[in-house]
């Protein structure tokens, strides 16, 4: 039995958790390759026009995987950190099984529907039993995997904090969801371009989730989405420590469409650039915009020094 893991959406949030879990159980799996133009096009052909870009990419990855594995791994996560999620995470299993109905695509997934700390373990236990493993095996694999994910995130956070303190370059906070910033098609070109322009990109996603969620109330009190709370919290924690904020959104992301506006209304003395990406890639245009944005940061710095 071979499980296919699409490199999209929740993969970027739970990368180490998933791979370690399957490694520990000895399940064979393949991960789809980094997003490229073909995958995006395949996804765009399968999806409804108005679907957001990350979902299109997810469909593209599943399209790539569908003949190469027995089952596709696609969890449904309805809550995280005690807060709600964008409805696309609630709907993704049903969406995929309906889109790929003719292919008789088999899905394997866990479903986190309830809040609380034990919900995730229970969901994994159910999935493990479905795959035919014993309870003790699943328990060991899950907690090992959870630890791996935790250490991975902690390492990321510490590394970034060190950069934030030591770096003398222009620090730019890049605000984007995990599945956007790490995607080879959406986020990577932006981070690369920022580095080329002699800036230090600070990734909001790498900040500690719990502290960020607590800090987010400073900007918005009733924000319902966990992942957006994380990003907004990073803004309120770091807005005095960075020279600029780049908001990277995909078209037409529902939560971001409102949260970006809120950030623009609340954060006033830091230059903010909003970049919106869609299935048509036009990196040249974005590079030009980033260049002029960095010029503004430099100009502002010079003025303050005078």
């Amino acid at each position: 039995m071979k499980i296919g893991i699409p490199r999209a959406l929740l993969y970027y949030k739970n990368e180490k958790l998933w791979t370690t879990f399957f490694d520990e159980l000895g399940v064979e799996y393949i991960i789809s390759p980094e997003t490229n133009k073909e995958i995006v096009n395949a996804g765009a052909n399968l999806a409804i026009d108005e679907t957001c870009l990350p979902t299109k990419i997810l469909l593209g990855h599943i399209d790539w995987l569908k003949d190469k594995c027995d089952m596709v791994f696609l969890p449904r996560v309805a809550t995280a950190h005690g807060y709600g999620m964008c409805t696309k995470f609630l709907a993704q299993t049903d969406l995929v099984s309906n889109t790929f109905r003719e292919h008789k695509l088999k899905l394997v997934f866990y479903n986190i529907d309830k809040r609380g700390t034990k919900a995730e373990y229970k969901a994994f236990k159910k999935m493990g039993k479905f795959l035919g493993f014993k309870r003790s095996q699943i328990k060991f694999a899950f907690f090992t995997a959870k630890q791996a994910q935790l250490y991975y995130e902690m390492f990321r956070t510490q590394n970034q904090e060190r950069i934030l303190q030591e770096s003398k370059k222009n620090k730019v906070l890049v605000l984007a969801h995990a599945y956007n910033i790490a995607d080879a098609f959406i986020g990577e070109p932006i981070v690369r371009a920022l580095k080329q322009l002699d800036c230090e990109p600070i990734i909001a996603e790498y900040c500690d989730a719990k502290t960020c969620i607590k800090a987010s109330t400073e900007i918005s009190k009733t924000l319902p989405w966990a992942y957006n709370k994380h990003l907004v919290g990073a803004v309120s924690l770091l807005k005095d420590k960075v020279d600029g904020i780049v908001i990277l959104t995909t078209f037409p992301c529902g939560p971001d469409s409102m949260v970006n506006e809120m950030i623009m209304h609340k954060v006033k003395n830091v230059p903010i650039l909003v970049l919106t990406m869609d299935a048509q890639d036009a990196t040249a245009g974005i590079e030009t915009r980033l260049e002029s944005y960095v010029d503004i940061i430099n100009f502002k710095k010079e003025r303050e020094n005078e």
Partner: peptide, 11 residues
Amino acid sequence: GCTPEIDAMPV
């Protein structure tokens, strides 16, 4: 751009 309704469309 109504996400839930878009997800219902393939169904």
